[in-house]
Amino acid sequence: MKIGLALRELHRSEADLHHELLQIADRHRVDHEIYHVAQDLAAWSRDHLRRIAEQAERYGEHLDPDARGENGLVARLWDKSSELMGRSSEAELLMLRDLRGVYLKASGVFVDWELIAQAAQGVRDTELVDVAQSCMGETQRQTAWANGKLKESATQALVS
């Protein structure tokens, strides 16, 4: 039985995505839609982390149900750089890079959820199946958001 291990890996990748979303929000405060929506999407990941930790207990894994906050020094430094970058076209390239990062990380989390859902069906853990299906839906929306933003921003960023 390696479901605990898989949940641990999922927890790691979801925490990573959560961090990435908060970071993109902070780096792109002057791109207001990114700033606000990324925080909403980070809240979804925060909720997922709690649910993963809850499920993992039954598989003998003790994972942190609370996501790490991002109000430290690093975040404040980014905040400053965001203001400095506000008037520069380089900011758009940085944004593409960051959105690409969210897209890849969210895709990774999605795959991890798929693995959990498959395993949970194998052991007939219907509770875990339900959790996986509900969370995967939101992970997919996180991916679609990053993808949509990339498509919307790429032309202006790359041709101007």
Binding site: V30, D31, H32, R87, S88, S89, E92, Q156, S160
Partner: peptide, 14 residues
Amino acid sequence: THAMQMMRYVENGS
């Protein structure tokens, strides 16, 4: 492009 995004593109000079 919506209006608020246009203002952002003006802001960053594109």
